[in-house]
């Protein structure tokens, strides 16, 4: 098997290539142009899609928790965030605590 170092280096190169391309292009596009407004919309849609996917269809061990457990965790996080004067740490802590509690009490939650 190839050393994991090759994977680490390929991953680093591919990741930096996107960033590098972003810097190169940013010197050529007018920040106030319509093209840039479109790119901004694409960036926000992509990130929202990524986050929704991390919650609805996660990879790895999280996939074994029930979808409803994760959705309720997200709901609790948003509710606590607003109830506690837009506190991100309290929202995050509340949502994660719910997930930990459910997985500890119901190891095979549907």
């Amino acid at each position: 098997m190839l050393s994991a170092w090759y994977f680490v280096l390929v991953g680093a190169l591919v990741t930096y290539a996107w960033r590098w391309a972003g810097v190169v292009l940013s010197g050529r596009i007018d920040p106030n142009s319509r093209a840039m407004r479109w790119v901004t919309a694409v960036a926000y849609a992509l990130l929202a899609g990524l986050i929704a996917r991390l919650i609805v269809a996660p990879q790895g061990a999280l996939a074994e928790t029930g979808l409803w457990v994760r959705l309720v965790a997200a709901g609790i996080a948003v509710a606590v965030y607003f109830l506690c004067r837009r506190s991100i740490p309290l929202g995050v802590a509340a949502g994660a605590s719910w997930l930990i509690a459910v997985s500890a009490l119901m190891p095979s939650a549907p």
Binding site: Y44, L47, A48, L50, I51, L54, I55, P58, G60, A61, L62, T65, R70, A73, A74, A77, V78, Y81, R86, I88, G91, V92, G95, A96, S97, L99, I100, A101, S103, A104, P107
Partner: peptide
């Protein structure tokens, strides 16, 4: 413990989600 690991991993999407609520 496994549930704690799960909770830690899930902190990230929750945090990102609330970041964007603003």
């Amino acid at each position: 413990p496994a549930p704690v690991t799960l909770g830690l991993v899930f902190l990230n999407p929750l945090y990102f989600m609330l970041l964007f609520v603003a």
